[in-house]
Design a protein around this nucleic acid. Structure first.
Lengths: 242, 242
DNA sequence: TACTTCTCAATTGTCGACAATTAATTTGTC
DNA sequence: GACAAATTAATTGTCGACAATTGAGAAGTA
């Protein structure tokens, strides 16, 4: 017995934005690589106007940057940015955790435990992609369960960036067991209602992960992602500042 | 002897976005009021496509909302939103303050003092508009001086909303002297390098201001801003969720 | 050669027209 | 009159065309 679901009609703009987003975070294009509207429009079978709107959307999310009359390029990863991203999410998740402890109920508690065990099993299987996915999912869950709409909205904006760095973050852990060991205390502190503790654990968790990332990025000197396979034709230095 | 300055050429899209933003935060249109692309395009002397792009930009900033095939409307103020906004900015400004104490120098210190005295003189003059302006400017300065680009970026997104609520927030203070008294400790804590204290003062400052706002909004029951002067023709309930 | 100017191809910026969708209004039916 | 169906007006969604701008390379010049 199947139940009919409303067919969600989504505008081409929204679909295009999603497709492009997945293309970027899925590694279809490399950080720093150039994007042209016409090529994307052809690939997606849409008009340039529609693709353009979608690109503007991604630019707002920070996944691509625009240079007037010159082009679009995928945002590149840097050590400074890693530090900023991790202090920022630390602060946001700390707020979420505090609020969450104040409104915790049985349902939310079980969701947290389920998410943690999902992460655990992914770690035990050694599936790298799944680990990143579940890791992000757990952090997102804390934010979502806080019930703070605006916070979720802001978190959503940096979510894709977090994912990009998280790949390296998780890889830099000594073992997958470490990943479990750093996440269990987070859930524990929240479910036992220790607001202050949950807050500081989340902030510290992120800031130390950030420090490790920064150190790694500085050592490797170059951006860890491969450089664009074809060189950027034009200089993309003068970025639109708005 | 004059020095040549680069002529800043800004695209119509960007100009339109700025004009619309000012129109909204300047009270040219009321919260909840409907906007149509054609009318705006006529008023600005631009094509609908350009205006549309600008509207999408504002939608990302959260100043307007869109209902597919139906229209755009200015976002309205609510008590729940006030609480969210003030907890969020509390968290962000607390982070900024902590970072700022770690990188404070003489120049930054004097900027802080100047900003505080600007606010003070506005309060003494009793100029309501200027007070809101300087109040926001001081908070922005703390974020800017923290040197955290991403944090600034995120703060910029909610800045206009803060301004909208700040008008009421400042009005609800018993006297303008109270405004000075609540801001001086912030600057003091930062310049004396008390990171922890600066952090918690900023968080508490915002959260208590938020509580006052929430209480006021709940009492007045209605949104404090006047209702739209002409009724919204269509129901704007089914908002695009993405 | 070193330098400037001109030319041109590539790309984004802007526009007006038409299609798709929505919701109010009118019409039809009982 | 009450309800349903058809019509219509208003609005956004999408498109292709043309204008503006950029950067690279060719051509000219000392």
């Amino acid at each position: 017995m199947t139940r009919l679901r409303p067919i969600k009609k989504r505008s081409a703009e929204v679909e295009a934005a999603e497709a492009l987003r997945n293309h970027v975070i899925g590694g279809g294009v490399h950080p720093g690589e150039r994007l042209t509207e016409v090529r994307l429009a052809e690939a997606l079978g849409l008009s340039r106007t529609t693709v353009r709107t979608a690109l503007h959307q991604l630019a707002n999310e920070g996944l691509v940057v625009q240079v007037p009359y010159t082009g679009w390029a995928v945002t590149s990863l840097t050590s400074a940015d890693a530090w900023e991203l991790y202090t920022l999410r630390g602060s946001m998740e700390a707020l979420a955790a505090r609020l969450l402890t104040e409104t915790l109920d049985a349902d939310k508690e079980s969701q947290l435990h389920r998410s943690l065990s999902d992460l655990t099993s992914a770690c035990q299987k050694g599936d790298e992609v799944a680990v990143v996915d579940r890791d992000l999912a757990l952090h997102k869950l804390v934010v979502a369960l806080s019930g703070h709409r605006r916070l979720m909205e802001q978190y959503r904006l940096i979510e894709q960036h977090i994912r990009l760095y998280l790949i390296w973050s998780d890889r830099l852990m000594r073992s997958h067991k470490d990943i479990i060991d750093t996440h269990r205390p987070i859930v524990d502190a929240i479910v036992t209602g220790k607001a202050k503790q949950a807050e500081s654990i989340l902030r510290d968790h992120n800031e130390s992960a950030g420090r490790i990332l920064v150190e790694f990025f500085n050592k490797s000197d170059q951006s860890p992602a491969e450089l664009p396979d074809r060189p950027i034709r034009r200089r993309l230095s003068r970025l639109r500042t708005r």
